[in-house]
Amino acid sequence: MYDFAYHKPSSVSDAVAALQGAEDGTVIAGGMTLIPTMKQRLAQPSDLIDLSGIGDLKGISVSGGTVTIGAMTTHAAVANSPDVQKAIPALAHLAGHIGDAQVRNRGTIGGSIANNDPTACYPSACLALGATIKTDSREIPAEEFFDGMFSTALEEGEMVVAVSFPVPEKAAYIKFPNPASRYALVGVFVAKTADGVRVAVTGAGEGGVYRASELEGPLSSNFSADAIKDVKLSADGLNSDIHASSAYRAHLVGVMARRAVEAANA
């Protein structure tokens, strides 16, 4: 690990000021990706701005059909929250199956979505549920937030402070884990909302999380696994690696989507 300057601000404004004042600074939330990357000397930030001292960034609230989760809320806190379990059980389930117990107790929702790892679980929930990402300066719809592998709409010096999820009628997330890393080889989040069905896929796309419109149409008219059993999904634009060819990923998107619909209806 290379040397860096360490800051632990106690407010969002101090954090943003520290970030903007650093030569090549980065915020650190749970550090579940950043720390290993730094240990391998693949990242060399000049400054680390540790967000763990900012109480405002932690916590979960539910009001008016919206679940709002502070950026520094851990996966374990989301998974174990009775409020989330009641309002959007699929979201609690998703959080409860990220990584292992250690990761879930350190990793945060803000860190996950700001990193936008193409195999992370949370981006699919954001996209399928039509979440809004709140930053220190604005609100960004999930559709606009995730704009490519490890890339987001965040500007230099901008940070996520919370994510708001509208409560759907029904939802489910099914992950097909990479056998080695157990990240999502393919993860499909299906949400039935008043505005129709949204299906978001993580792990599979070359550009990160995406909506599977070929599945959304049939499911919007008939929210059952049967409605999509004959939909052939194209492998174009999907990742191919030693664990899964693009054709296998395309096939798994269909299977996981059907299983997610069944789980949502169960």
Binding site: N178, P179, A180, S181, I242
Partner: peptide, 22 residues
């Protein structure tokens, strides 16, 4: 689960637990 994979240039594609399945 376990399979060591090299690419044709000799880079180890299963060089960590991210890709080598214990």
């Amino acid at each position: 689960l376990e399979g060591c994979v090299y690419d044709d240039s000799g880079q180890l594609l299963t060089g960590s637990y991210m890709d080598y399945t214990m």
